[in-house]
Every structure is written in structure tokens, then in C-alpha cells.
């Protein structure tokens, strides 16, 4: 019995780290799941605010947007070029990370206002909270989308 459990323990020690191994493709895939999610959520919010979607879901979308934005920056920390991320992301990390953090903060603020004061008020913050343009112009490679 002892020998079996020792063997089991040894193999686990060898195998477990391999289970957790993240390769480059995983990194790119994960951050793309996040960014694409953001794209969809931004789109639906835009639909609702222009009267082409169900207003009752406004707050839900603001919440999910804020939550997703909160994990976006970290997904770029691993310096793995690929997908549509230009090398500038890491070359200008100070600026990139500052912008991502602003995005996370402002969308969190928007969701908070939505929860506490109603989506009317939150909608006022929407343009500020979603500065996709400024960042994408610099850091996203249009040809690789």
C-alpha cells in the first residue's frame, strides 16, 4: 500500500505542473475571449442606448462590461505578441496599462452609478467609460482582426 501511494504521489507531482502549463496560444486565446466579450457587450450597450435594444437589460450589460474590463489588463501582462495585439502594447506598457486601468475604473464607476442612481445617470458616463477608439488606434492591428 505504501509503495502504491508513493508511486501515486510521485506521478501526481510530475503530472500536476503539466496540467497547469500555459502556452502562448492559451495566453492569446484567453485575452481574445475577454476582448471579444467586451466587443459584444459594448455593441449591445450601444444598441440599447440608441433605442435598438431592450432598455431593461441596460444595467446588466453595464455590470458585465465593468466586470470584464476589470480582468482585461492582467490578460495582457504576459508578453506574448499575437492575435491583434501590436508590439507597442509592451513597448509602451506604461501608457497601455494606464489606459486599460482607466477603462476598468470608468466602467466600474458607470456600473456603480447605474446601480445607485439609475441607468439614466449612468448613461451620461458612457462615452467616457468606453474609450475603445483611442487605444485601438494605437495598440490594435486592424489587419489581424
Amino acid at each position: 500500500m505504501k509503495r502504491v501511494s508513493k508511486a501515486v504521489a510521485l506521478s501526481l507531482m510530475v503530472l500536476l505542473p503539466m496540467v497547469g502549463h500555459t502556452d502562448d496560444k492559451d495566453v492569446v486565446d484567453y485575452r481574445q475571449h475577454i476582448m471579444k466579450s467586451l466587443e459584444h457587450q459594448t455593441a449591445v450597450l450601444g444598441q440599447i442606448l440608441s433605442g435598438a435594444g431592450p432598455a431593461e437589460n441596460t444595467l446588466a450589460h453595464m455590470e458585465t462590461l465593468a466586470l470584464t474590463a476589470s480582468v482585461a489588463l492582467k490578460s495582457f501582462e504576459a508578453k506574448v505578441p499575437g492575435g491583434a495585439a501590436k508590439p507597442e502594447v509592451w513597448k509602451d506598457w506604461a501608457d497601455f496599462s494606464k489606459r486599460m486601468k482607466e477603462f476598468a475604473d470608468k466602467s466600474a464607476e458607470m456600473a456603480k452609478v447605474g446601480r445607485e442612481q439609475g441607468v439614466d445617470q449612468a448613461a451620461m458616463l458612457v462615452i467616457e467609460a468606453l474609450p475603445c477608439k483611442g487605444c485601438h488606434d494605437v495598440y490594435r492591428d486592424e489587419k489581424k482582426l
Binding site: 442606448l49 440608441s50 439614466d120
Partner: peptide, 10 residues
């Protein structure tokens, strides 16, 4: 508040 969402929206 949500029902009034359209009021101030463009």
C-alpha cells in the same frame, strides 16, 4: 429609473 432610461438618452 430604467423605464425612464430613454428620457435622457439621445
Amino acid at each position: 429609473g430604467i423605464a425612464l432610461a430613454g428620457t435622457l438618452l439621445p
